[in-house]
Design a binder for these strands. Structure first.
Ligand code: FES
Ligand code: FES
Lengths: 143, 143
DNA sequence: ATAGTAAAAGACCTTTTTGTCTTTTATAAA
DNA sequence: TTTATAAAAGACAAAAAGGTCTTTTACTAT
């Protein structure tokens, strides 16, 4: 479904939110270990999240990453759009340069409703709603 | 949705079927030109399709590619499975090593029904059904 | 103040995907 | 039976994705 970068971003952000809910702010080392991502790759991804203001970071002792609790929840689709771009979300499955009702490809009519269901899911589902569904033994058997 | 190889494979096979329906057997040069794919990359992809017996090929003057009319229609999912593998079709969106009802990720419950709808579509839709939906001015504005 | 800690930045490397070029093999038409 | 033609094969190269390593900057607790 997603590329590695998006996958790590989603898992990492959920891990951050999950720890924040326990009043902890995890650092990159801890995050990467627990979601099974390469540490420095994860660092780059989280830097991108910070630049987008999806999360905040704190340097120095006791530092790490955390969500601003005064901000609205973060829908998955924003992360997907940032990393994979609009084509992933609205592109033509057949490869036309543009998905257009007036110039439908042979998959269009059946594909579009499914794509809309996916977009609805990823617009409604947020990092926060997913963190709430995660359990205490956070680390799942990735890879 | 798909990677380039799958996209070219689907478009190429549809083009072949479309021409076969007009009692023509197109060669690689013609196919690549019309579906906007790089010629030698397309050639490799079609070689793979021939090895899988999805299509037949004919060398020499007047040669090209064609479907065996006595065989059943070719569902898209077979091409997707061959090129992108089972993870594309049944993998966990969150990145667990295995999508499992007994160990659901935070996306599982909402994602699985959508994934099933996609798989249903690509199992029912065939190269032949799609070729029938293509129109005379075959070449669409790809890229 | 300063020492230790953790994020930020960026150079560099590996693998996969995508694409190109050349040679070989098979076939059919003349 | 030769010749033109088209697929098959495989070496090579560019670009993108994925991943590693080192240095710099900022912050905080002591
Ligand atoms: S035109 Fe292809 S999906 Fe809409
Ligand atoms: S476990 Fe993740 S989609 Fe099923």
């Amino acid at each position: 479904m997603f590329n590695k970068e998006t996958e790590y971003a989603i898992r990492g952000l959920i891990y951050i939110q999950f720890q924040n809910d326990l009043n902890l702010i995890p650092n990159i080392n801890e995050i990467a270990l627990n979601i099974d991502a390469p540490q420095h790759f994860m660092a780059k991804i989280l830097q991108k999240m910070v630049r987008q203001n999806f999360i905040n970071s704190q340097k120095g002792k006791g530092g790490g990453f955390y969500f601003d609790k005064t901000k609205p929840e973060l829908p998955l689709i924003e992360i997907i759009l940032l990393i994979e771009g609009d084509k992933k979300v609205n592109g033509c499955a057949y490869g036309l340069n543009k998905c257009d009702n007036n110039n439908p490809c042979p998959l269009h009519n059946q594909y579009v409703p499914i794509r809309e269901a996916i977009n609805k899911l990823f617009s409604e589902e947020t990092i926060q709603s997913m963190a709430a569904k995660s359990h205490i033994d956070f680390k799942a058997p990735f890879v």
